[in-house]
Design a protein around this nucleic acid. Structure first.
Length: 475
RNA sequence: GGCCCCAUCGUCUAUCGGUUAGGACGCGACCCUUUCAAGGUCGAAAGACGGGUUCGAUUCCCGUUGGGGCUACCA
């Protein structure tokens, strides 16, 4: 068996959608698994909507996910001549014909069909125009499109994920392959390119199954062997509809911005519609590659569950040493307008790592420890403060009193805890009532690492300063 | 409307005719604990419906219902 050649062929008319990213991932996984070649092709034949900026975003998204291509990126627009030559050949062999019906005529027929609630299909009027008449009219300058003469036969294939899928040629249109301006339509361009690039496995979204019989007809008309088709299920929103903008974040870049790790995204996407067959959840790249198979791809659509993505990201976050987190956290801090200055971030990162699921959340917590809370207290914190009343400030003042004697050199979590406990005991204060005000004063919220560790991480001078400030604010 | 695809906990899934239908997310409880997480233990939670085939169906076949996709001189 010859080595597989697969391709990912996005159109640069929008951002890299998670569905597209997963399709790319499956192609990539298959290529790596089989030692095959992964080709990247940009389908820019829709000149109206294609932009270079979108192309770049797609390339960046794939790179971010660690999906590398072996050939390309090729641009479909560059192969116009071949597409036209293929169409001309089909025309010459009588497998396609010129259609002189105007857009208006077609539009009227479509509207009439819609009014009667029946399906529209081109009436094939121009099929019977005699070749010599067709040529004469074309040479006289009459505008025309080129349509494929759809055979009546069954058009079926053995789909690698669905099994056998079959269409009847007579249910299909004599679809247009060349526009009035002689540019190719998607289906022609795709087949022409896949043949030229010797693609052996077409792995793409389920939304293309209805294109497949048309493309098979094209392969046959062009006399080329058909590739193996594998149609992967759609990704749905939580309402069961095809995932789209109105479901929120659908672009890979959105998740990148939210602090999701590429490895977590890749792991999550791989498991959406594919399963290695056991209980595996967190899988390193090599394992995914070695276990990947087209047969393991699910045939039903899958709902994109952000909660699970975030959980998975948390798993990757926990497993990442603070050292490796330093650079990404610094980038996020910069976005937040915060800075670590001369401070070592590692202890701070370690202190809050388990309380974060994304790097963005992590950086926010780090920023609070570096610069103190900003703005209003969180609702729970405000409620606690209210409940405690004047004791809130009193307890803070006592904490400052208990902690002040500790020198910079002894400022560690053990020593701090000891001092707080001692102070609380001395004043007959419940430990929680002594601790929680400190947490609130330092973070603005009720969630953090243990208070003594929090104090250690914030540092002696900054801690005492903030505590005193809050204690003295009202008392 | 037509054509095509699909159907196991709320969600992602395992099961390749025989299981107390397993795991994960999420949810609940408990443990741990100065709070919250993390971690640990436990729990609630599924084969859409109706026919077949078979000694035996979640699994194979048919139908119903439900959902999705496509239906352009877009890709």
């Amino acid at each position: 068996m010859l080595t597989p050649r697969v391709r990912f062929a996005p159109s640069p008319t929008g951002y890299l959608h998670v569905g597209g990213a997963r399709t790319a991932l499956f192609n990539w996984l298959y290529a790596r698994k089989t030692g095959g070649t992964f080709v990247l092709r940009i389908e820019d034949t829709d000149r109206e909507r294609s932009t270079e900026a979108h192309t770049q975003v797609i390339l960046d998204g794939l790179t971010w996910l660690g999906i590398t291509w072996d050939e390309g990126p090729f641009f479909q627009g560059a192969d116009l001549a071949r597409h036209q030559a293929d169409a001309a050949r089909l025309l010459a062999e009588g497998k396609a014909y010129r259609c002189f019906c105007t857009r208006e005529e077609l539009e009227a027929q479509r509207a009439a069909a819609a009014a009667q609630k029946t399906g529209f299909r081109y009436n094939r009027r121009c099929r019977t125009v005699k070749p010599e008449d067709s040529l004469r009219r074309a040479e006289a300058g009459e505008p025309f499109t080129v349509r494929l003469r759809m055979p009546d036969d069954e058009l079926a294939w053995d789909d690698a994920v669905h099994g056998r899928i079959s269409f009847q040629g007579h249910d299909l249109d004599d679809f247009v392959i060349l526009r009035t301006d002689a540019t190719p339509i998607y289906n022609l361009a795709v087949v022409s390119d896949d043949i030229a690039m010797r693609i052996t496995h077409v792995i793409r979204g389920d939304d293309h199954v209805s294109n497949t019989p048309k493309q098979i007809a094209l392969y046959r008309a062009l006399g080329a062997p058909e590739p193996i088709f594998a149609h992967v299920p759609m990704i749905l929103g939580s309402d069961g509809k095809k995932l789209s903008k109105r479901h929120g974040a659908t672009a890979v870049g959105d998740y990148q911005d939210q602090g999701i790790f590429p490895a977590a995204m890749r792991n999550f996407l791989a498991l959406l519609g594919w399963s290695p067959g056991g209980d595996r959840e967190i899988m390193p790249e090599e394992e995914m590659i070695s276990l990947f198979s087209l047969e393991g791809i699910q045939s039903k659509p899958a709902v994109f569950d952000v909660a699970k993505l975030e959980w998975m990201n948390g798993q990757y976050l926990s497993a990442t040493p603070a050292e490796e987190l330093r650079a990404p956290v610094e980038r996020q801090l910069a976005r937040l307008g915060a800075s670590a200055g001369a401070r070592d971030l590692l202890p701070v990162i370690d202190a809050v790592k388990t309380r974060s699921r994304t790097v963005v959340q992590l950086a926010e917590q780090v920023a609070v420890r570096l610069h103190g809370p900003s703005g209003e207290l969180e609702p729970k914190a405000a409620a606690f403060r209210q409940k405690l009343g004047a004791a809130f400030e009193v307890n803070l003042a006592r904490a400052v009193e208990a902690l002040s004697p500790i020198g910079e050199a002894e400022w560690n979590s053990e020593r701090i805890l000891e001092a707080i406990k001692q102070g609380a005991e001395q004043h007959g204060t419940r430990l929680g009532d002594a601790m929680q005000p400190i947490r609130i004063a330092l973070t603005g919220g009720t969630v953090s690492e243990p208070v003594n560790e929090l104090l250690a991480v914030v540092g002696r001078d900054a801690s005492l300063e903030r505590l005193s400030a809050v204690a003295g604010r009202t008392s």
